[in-house]
Simulated assay, not measured.
Amino acid sequence: MKNPLRYIPIFLLNFICLSAFAQLQVQAKADKQKLFIGDQFRLNISVTGDQNAITGFPIADSLPGFELIEQGKIDTSIQGGMVLLQQELVLTSFDSGRQVIPPFHLEVGDRIYRSDSIPIEVTYSPNGVPQEYHDIKDIQEVKGDINWLYWIAGVGSLLALVLIFFWWRKNRNKHPAIKRYEHLSPYEEAMKLLNDLETEEMPVKERYTRLTYIFRIFLKRKFNWNAFGKTTYDLLLEVEKTPLPEDDYKLLAQTLRTCNLVKFAKYEPAPNEHSTHIGSIRHIIKSLNNQP
């Protein structure tokens, strides 16, 4: 008869692993949940857990309705035997109404840990209204000379600020300037753009930004998705609904996360990895194009 005691170490090991994962927690906290248009607020993202359970950190990809002003470094500390990773973002919003910061997520093994979503109320600054009204007085002559230079300088400065604001609004979500081939099919255009990307010389960040952009162009044209209005996480959820094989889906997720690390965390892949990542996106596009 087999000795049942030999299963105890395996049971204890599973119990320890499950306990470590159970203690992992992803949180997001904002120092303000009501603000005026253009006001800045701070968002703290943290991951707490056992050292062996934490395998990454949520990436602040894009937050619809908000603008990223500053992105702090990821700080590491130990509290009560647990590892704490923290990052602080400075955000603002120019869209009035109720905006929502979506949950940040972290994949560990087969599990996904998410923070709570955070509602943010963005309102216009209230105008001061006099408490008392008085009769209209006659026009009185102002004594003294008026320095028109001050008026001209003030009006000129105001116009310059208005022009800068509209220029910023126009260019904040501007896509990379690349040559398009819209007369081709979505698949043919994607292949042509990937070939151009592989042969052109450019900085690493621009290369991986274009790689993500080419993949989103294909999804928008092929499936009519709002590919440019979704985060990487939301985009992967949409792709998961397609008949794409599981191995291809994992390859896509890994490649897109690498692109985000290059764009937002200053990660620099080895030169020989550039062709590998471009080839991965080329393979995924071929698989999606062959789907019914």
Rank of each mutant, 00 (worst) to 15 (best):
Y150P: 04
D39I: 00
I59W: 02
W225D: 05
E141V: 12
F218T: 05
Q23I: 00
Q40E: 14
P130G: 10
G128F: 14
F165M: 02
E132R: 09
E70W: 03
S19K: 04
T199D: 12
F165Q: 08
F215L: 15
Q51R: 13
N52L: 09
L193I: 02
V122N: 03
F166M: 06
D95M: 03
V142K: 15
N127T: 08
F57W: 10
F264P: 03
T199E: 15
V142P: 05
Y113M: 02
E182W: 05
R207Y: 07
K170Q: 13
S96I: 04
P119F: 07
K32W: 01
E198T: 05
E88D: 11
I278Q: 12
D196E: 15
D234L: 06
F228N: 06
K179T: 13
S93Y: 04
R180E: 09
F94R: 05
I217V: 11
I54F: 03
Q25I: 00
F66M: 06
T92N: 13
D95E: 13
G56I: 00
E121M: 08
F104W: 01
Q27W: 00
G72W: 07
H134M: 14
L68D: 05
V83N: 05
K29Y: 11
E70P: 00
S275V: 07
L219T: 05
E121S: 09
K137S: 10
N195E: 12
L211G: 02
N147W: 00
L211E: 10
D110L: 13
P58I: 00
R207L: 08
K222F: 10
P269N: 01
L261M: 15
E200W: 08
